[in-house]
Write a protein that binds this DNA or RNA. Structure first.
Lengths: 316, 316
DNA sequence: TTTTCGGTTGAGCTATTGCTCATTGATTGG
DNA sequence: CCAATCAATGAGCAATAGCTCAACCGAAAA
């Protein structure tokens, strides 16, 4: 008898769900049809959902992305996560994630109350600032997390901070420092001098950090861009480095290394664990271990990536 | 560019739909996530539905029934239609439809304002009245559409009107007449006498008619119950009879025959087309042509049947 | 350059929905 | 048989969704 009632209740729930979601009736109409009160009709619709009698299927590539983003967000307790459809024609294309990063920057910068945005390295970050909608926000501040002078003394490093400031009229604070100093002592001296200390102080108050994630292998961007030598790169790899964020190398568990180039690095170190919104932006199979490690080590609390990369991270 | 925007709009619609239906967020939350106004978020969710980006799938046997009922209702412009799951163990079982008929009667009889319910023949109708919830409605009226005296003069015909009256305290009007008279003249005389004319008048004002549908073949219920002889049945079949409602035989197009037993029949004739709620209740492969004809001829404007029968009717 | 037009937007209103809580009614144990 | 308990119910309210309308924006035409 109990089973009988149970069954008939589920039947009614299914009926209500059908009438609600498929036929598009209101719960009031359904209540009249099924000869129950509106409250009961609502309960039946809820039950239909709770018992998973009805399922939703989104026939769109976006669906998989949303799913992956939700899983990443859950798994790594992220404050923010976006997964864009992978472009099969260009698996490494940063266009998709750059657009989302730009959108995120737009949203942050739209605020009338002053905000501080800190930028790291990475092609996605560079591409993102190019896509930011121009807006006049002179009271905002844009601060760099990394030195903008490369090994040869030139300031050739792509000036993301300056570009973003151009588009917003915000004050900007590049870090007038070489990426690496020649020794730990020298680094410690430099970061204590007034203009650098000021940048550090502003960066510490940043409302959002947007950083790229680099893998530490033969194709490491920090090496390609000439910030670290081949020897330095290989030394870090020997020491266990698997990825880097603003130059700070970390191992497979996302722990910052205490040796090697990290001792001579002028970049603002990541918060561990990340408390302020710290969004990592990266795509590509090569970066998967680096991204996964950064997530495990809580070096970032936000991620913008593509479908293929997201899937690879979750499958590890 | 237009295509680009169109695509991105659909992407957003899919995103909104996912967040709404799958993740269960409110449109307000979605608006904040996608950086649009709540109104726009609502539009995106609507668009997602309109473009069929999202589909609902009801994983329950009831779903097919709802679907069939909706199609029957649409196809034959029915005021009411219910399809119950077919019981694979007993394909002819009237239990399912009787329960629904009883429910319908319950709903009708629940009204405080006086209603008139007219009952026809059929096992489903008989079973239905047995399942009606007892309720005290002395001002209602229950009227029979068919004579309750069979060929041998006995009143053995199952007394649905009386049983329903028992359960409701309603006044009831059986038709104290033989099912068939010996001639057309005699029929015409009988239906004009006072008590019969009164029953006819009440039946004409009925708020609802619940009737069975009989097939006209060797297993015709009217013959089995002894209301028509074998010869009479075969004559009607020769004349094109394919089904009967309250004894009134009709052809494959649902047109009432003007000859044969119909000329001697005392039953209240159906309205053509049915204006008052006239619900046919019948199941079984054998009844499919009869039901389909009744629907086509608008002898009924409501149907209660089972899944297998509904499917067969639609596939004709 | 100005005008017009189609389409998009957000404010604000109304309908619908979800939920809480007191009440009812059924069921089980005494 | 009665009382206690618990799930189900419906009223009523607060939150949410859907819709209308006026305003706005950008594109195409004059």
């Amino acid at each position: 008898m109990a089973a009988e009632n149970e069954k008939s209740r589920l039947d009614d729930a299914a009926r209500a769900g059908w009438l609600y979601f498929i036929a598009g009736h209101t719960q009031d109409e359904i209540a009249k049809m099924l000869q129950v009160s509106r409250a009961s009709a609502q309960r039946l619709v809820s039950l239909c959902l709770a018992e998973r009698l009805i399922t939703f299927r989104l026939e769109h590539p976006i669906a998989a992305c949303m799913e992956l983003a939700a899983r990443l967000k859950e798994r790594f307790a992220l404050a923010h996560c976006e997964v864009v459809p992978a472009d099969p024609a260009a698996p490494q294309a940063t266009a998709g994630i750059a657009e989302r990063c730009a959108n995120l920057l737009d949203a942050t910068l739209r605020s009338e109350t002053p905000v501080i945005v800190a930028l790291g390295t990475g092609r996605a970050v560079r591409a993102a600032v190019e896509r930011v909608t121009p807006i006049d926000r002179p009271n905002h501040q844009i601060v760099s997390l990394v030195g903008n002078i490369s090994a040869d003394g030139s300031a050739s490093f792509y000036d993301t901070v300056g570009r973003l400031a151009d588009r917003t009229g915000a004050r900007h604070y590049p870090m007038p420092l070489p990426f690496l100093m020649s020794s730990e002592d020298e680094r410690n001296k430099m970061v204590r001098i007034e203009p650098i200390a000021k940048v550090k102080a502003i960066a510490a108050k940043a409302d959002m950090r947007l950083v790229g994630i680099g893998q530490m292998d033969q194709k490491a961007q920090v090496h390609i861009d000439g910030f670290v030598t081949r020897d330095e790169l290989f030394e870090m790899m020997r020491l266990g480095a698997i990825g880097e964020i603003t130059g700070w190398a970390y191992d497979a568990k996302g722990r910052l290394l205490k040796t090697g180039t990290n001792k001579r690095l002028t970049s603002i170190p990541p918060e561990v664990p990340a408390r302020t919104t710290t969004i990592g932006a990266a795509v590509g199979a090569a970066k998967v271990p680096a991204i996964a490690a950064a997530l495990h080590g809580r070096l970032i609390n936000g991620l913008i990536t593509d479908e293929a990369t997201a899937r690879a991270i979750l499958e590890r």
